Simulated scan of single mutants.
Amino acid sequence: MLVEGRVVIVSARIGAGHDGAATELARRLRARGLAVGCHDFLDLLPGRLGQRLCDAYHRELEIAPRTWDWLLAALGTAPLAWVADRIAALALPRLRVVLGGSPGLVVSTYPAASQAIGGLRRRGELAAPFAVYLTDPSVHRLTVNTYADLHIAPNRHAAAAARGRGAPRVEWATPVVAPGFRPAVPGERGRARERFGLAAGERLALVVSGSWGVGEVEGITADVAATGAAHPVVVCGRNEALRDRLRRAGVSRVFGWVDDMPSLMRACDVVVQNAGGLTTLEALATGLPVLTYRSLPGHGRTNARVLDEIGLVPTVSRDGLEHALRTASPAELPVAEDPAALLATLVPPMAAEARSA
C-alpha cells in the first residue's frame, strides 16, 4: 500500500477547468507510479454549502454576469479576502480526514482549496509538500497562497504575476491538456465532420462557452453567422435551455454536452471562446486558431486581456470579427517542462522508496 507516495489533489466542480486540470495531472502522476486521489473541495464544506455556492455562482453568471466584475475586484480587497478565507476554513474538518495518512504531496487546482490547505500549513498541521496549480492565464490574489512550496503557472506572464503576489517559488510549465487534443492527421477532419453531421466544404467556427454554456452565446452565434465568413457550430455544454433556444432560433449545428471534444475540434477551422479557460488551451493544442469575442465579465475579461497580450489568443471586436474569422492563424502553446515532472520532484525520497517497493 502506498502511503507516503500518495498524492492528494483537491479541485472543485466550478465549471470544468479546475477538474480538467486535476484529472490530467492525476493521469500524468499515476503514469509516474504515484497513487493519486482526487477530491472536490465543495464536498468538503459542511452540509450542502458547497453545492449552494456553486449554484449561486452559476446563477450569477446567467442572470447578472456583470456583477462578477465587481465581485472579482472586491475579492481582491482585504475585507472580502478575509471572508473568503473564513468560508474556506469551514472545509478544514473534512480536509483533515482527506489528508490523513501522511500524503507525499498535496496539490490544489482551486483557489478556495489553496486557502484551506494553506491554513493547515500555517497551523503546523500539514508537513507534506504543498503545490498550487494555477489554471487561468490571469492571476487573482486568492489564487496565490504564500504557504505553498510551489506554484505552477501556465505561462511566463502568470508566473511573474504570481511572484508579484508573494508566491515564494513559481515555475511555469506547459499547460495540462489531455493527449487526445492534437492536430488532425490527413483525412481525419473529413471523417470527424461526417461523424458530427457537418458539411465537408464549409468553413466552420466552433463557438464554446465552457461546460455551463454561459455568456452571450446567442449573440456570439448570430454575429458569427452574420459575417458570412464561417458557419457557427455551437457547444452548449450542460445548458439544455440554451441548446433548445438556439435550435428554435434556427441554428442547425448545435450540440449539448459533447463526450469527444477532440474530434469535434478537429472537424472545425476556428474556435470562438469567451472565458479563456481550459477549452482555449485544448483548442490551441489541437492546432486551431482561437478568438476571444464578447468575453465573460470577471475572469473572462482578465483572461482575455492576458491571452491577447502574450499573443496566444486575440480579442476581436464586432467590426473585426469577419476579418478575424477569415484570416486567423493558430498560435503554438509555449513548450516547457511537464507540470507533473515538477510536482514529482516534491515527493520526498521516502515516498519514492515506498512507491517502488
Rank of each mutant, 00 (worst) to 15 (best):
M1F: 00
V3P: 00
V8E: 07
I14F: 11
G17S: 03
D19H: 10
G20C: 12
A22I: 09
T23W: 11
T23A: 15
E24F: 14
R28V: 02
L29R: 14
A35T: 12
V36P: 14
F41C: 15
L42C: 02
L44K: 10
L44G: 07
L44S: 10
P46C: 02
L49E: 01
G50W: 00
G50P: 01
R52T: 05
L53Q: 05
L53F: 04
R59S: 07
E60K: 01
L61R: 08
A64T: 08
P65F: 02
W68Y: 12
D69G: 11
D69Y: 04
W70D: 10
L71T: 11
A74H: 09
L75I: 08
L75T: 12
V83T: 08
L92H: 05
R94C: 04
V97A: 15
V97G: 11
V97F: 08
G101Q: 07
P103W: 07
G104E: 10
L105C: 13
V106C: 07
T109I: 12
G118R: 09
R121H: 13
G124H: 15
A128D: 12
F130Q: 12
V132I: 14
D136K: 09
S138Q: 13
T143H: 04
T146M: 13
H151Q: 05
I152M: 06
P154K: 07
H157S: 09
A162E: 03
R165N: 06
V170A: 13
A173L: 01
A173I: 01
V176D: 06
V176F: 11
F181I: 02
P183M: 03
P186D: 04
R189K: 11
R191V: 13
A192N: 11
R193Y: 04
E194F: 06
R195G: 10
A200C: 06
A200H: 08
S209I: 02
G213W: 05
E218Y: 03
A225L: 11
V233N: 03
V235R: 01
R238H: 11
L242P: 04
A249Y: 00
V251I: 06
V251A: 08
V254Y: 03
V254D: 09
W257R: 06
V258C: 02
V258R: 02
D260E: 09
L264M: 05
R266F: 00
A267S: 03
A267G: 11
V270Y: 02
V272M: 09
Q273V: 14
A275I: 08
G277M: 07
T279N: 10
T280W: 00
L281Y: 09
T286W: 00
S295R: 15
N303D: 14
N303C: 13
D308F: 06
E309R: 15
L312I: 07
V316M: 10
H323A: 15
A324M: 14
R326E: 10
A328Y: 09
S329N: 10
A331M: 04
A331Q: 10
A336S: 02
E337C: 08
A341H: 10
L343C: 13
T345V: 14
T345D: 15
V347H: 12
A354E: 13
R355V: 08
R355T: 05
S356M: 09
